[in-house]
């Protein structure tokens, strides 16, 4: 098994690759009720995130990446995703286990909620992240490994992402359009799912 720091770095690389792969699709989702730049913004953020300082522990690498993301991406999603990654990384201390990963996810979500004042059901990234963290927490408590808990929690993230199609936004720029976005998945919830899925693939490759 690779060092945790190397896995963290590989996870960030995989997140960037996943966002680049889906950049146009994310832009199209965003153009339904927004300005169509979500894919570009996430790509800009993750490009900066992978270029950030990679010395130190897994937590430090992730925190540095989050800082770089927040400093570069711009937009609401830049601030929110950057704060999430930075806060989660800052909370992730060695030695890493599933309970600590869950605690880090929780810290990241707390930071995001503080900044964006959102909650589940408002057609945002939180609709993917919060069910994922909850499912991950249950898996961790059941004694699953970092990797197995991630695998077990991913369907909750996917279901959360898909549920945003039936939601009417209450926050963000798309809230102005409200009904117009009905039937379309939230671009932020979608990009977060792609990132979580990419991290899951890295864990599957590197962890026992």
């Amino acid at each position: 098994m690779a060092e945790h720091a190397e896995i963290a770095a590989a996870a960030l690389d995989a997140a960037l690759a996943a966002i680049l792969e889906h950049e146009d699709e994310l832009g199209k989702l965003d153009s339904v009720a927004g300005d169509g730049d979500h894919g570009a913004g996430m790509a800009r953020g993750f490009r900066a995130a992978v270029a950030a300082d990679r010395n130190g522990s897994a937590g430090q690498i992730i925190a540095n990446a989050g800082m770089a993301f927040a400093n570069t991406a711009g937009g609401a999603s830049g601030a929110l995703v950057g704060m999430f990654i930075m806060s989660a990384g800052a909370a992730l201390t060695d030695p890493i286990d599933a309970a600590k990963v869950h605690a880090a996810l929780t810290k990241g979500i707390e930071a995001m909620v503080r900044l964006g004042k959102g909650q589940v059901g408002e057609k945002t990234m939180l609709d993917t992240l919060i069910p994922f963290a909850a499912a991950y927490g249950e898996a961790a408590q059941a004694g699953l490994s970092v990797r197995a808990a991630w695998e077990q929690a991913l369907p909750a993230a996917e279901a959360g992402m898909k549920s945003t199609a039936q939601m009417i936004p209450k926050r963000g720029r798309s809230s102005v359009l409200r009904e117009k976005s009905l039937g379309t998945q939230d671009p932020g919830a979608t990009s977060i799912y792609y990132v979580l899925a990419a991290v899951g693939r890295v864990l599957a490759e590197h962890c026992p």
Binding site: D35, G36, D37, A40, G41, R44, A70, N71, T72, A73, G74, G75, A76, G78, A79, G82
Partner: peptide
């Protein structure tokens, strides 16, 4: 000045 249609990051 942010990118096109994108608010500038807090750092800027």
């Amino acid at each position: 000045i942010g990118d096109v249609f994108t608010s500038p990051p807090g750092e800027q």
